[in-house]
């Protein structure tokens, strides 16, 4: 599968995403500077974590107007797969490619820890190698990860099954104490209506080798890679 990782000024986790894709998964992955307007032949675009444009104004608010974002919007409109991790998730929300918004953590503190998330829907391009209810251990590190959406939008998203990941306790149960940032309904990751754009606050690219404490992140990347030829 052909992947591309986008680098914005202030991106941090682009190299980790490339490492996960190239070295660990043996995929073909290129790096695209945010001023690029042509995506080339690519099947999945990754918007990595970091602090694009220093998080000025709002996280992702300025990056969404980078030249490459217009092409990514068209790519997504044509059914291309887009994965946004952490700051990438914030950019996708600001660009209206995903519903909702990410606000300051309810605790007002930056959180940096490993959390448990539960897969809420299988059979999407991002979760097809996992089963519904499966638990993943993934790291988070963010100050603005509190997911919010208007009540009616949230209801429709739940109905359509767009919530793909939720924060849970280590037993897989919903619990406000296991919700690290105060997200509505413990939402950790959401897809768009067509299920070809996915954003999540946890970092699968930091959990791809047992040396890192978990390799559960591989399940997300290999789910995406499993779409080839489908």
């Amino acid at each position: 599968m052909k992947w591309a990782v986008v680098r914005f000024p202030g991106s941090l986790d682009d190299d980790d995403a490339l490492h996960a894709l190239r070295e660990v998964l043996g995929q073909s992955a290129s790096l695209l500077w945010h001023k690029e307007e042509r995506l080339g032949e690519v099947e999945c675009i990754v918007l990595p974590g970091g602090f694009s444009y220093g998080d000025y104004l709002r996280c992702g608010a300025i990056a969404r107007f980078s030249p490459i974002m217009k092409s990514i919007g068209e790519f997504a409109a044509n059914g291309g797969l887009v994965l946004g991790i952490c700051n990438g998730f914030q950019i996708l929300c600001e660009a209206h490619l995903l519903p909702g918004a990410l606000m300051r953590n309810r605790s007002l503190s930056f959180v940096c820890e490993t959390v448990t998330v539960r897969v809420e829907k299988s059979e999407t391009p991002f979760t097809r190698s996992m089963r519904c209810g499966e638990l993943l251990r993934l790291p988070i590190k963010h100050g603005e990860g509190c997911y919010v959406a208007p009540a009616e939008e949230l209801r429709m998203m739940e109905e359509r099954g767009q919530v793909l990941l939720r924060y849970v306790d280590t037993e897989g149960r919903l619990d406000e104490r296991a919700n690290p940032n105060g997200s509505m309904r413990s939402i950790a990751g959401v897809a768009n209506e067509r299920f070809n754009v996915f954003g999540l606050m946890p970092h699968p690219e930091h959990a791809v080798e047992s040396l890192l404490g978990s390799n559960d992140g591989l399940k997300i990347f290999s789910s995406i890679a499993a779409n080839v030829g489908r």
């Binding site: 709002r58 608010a61 918004a101 959406a149 208007p150």
Partner: peptide, 8 residues
């Protein structure tokens, strides 16, 4: 378009 996010 930029200065405010009408969702929040």
């Amino acid at each position: 378009q930029l200065l405010a996010n009408p969702i929040i």
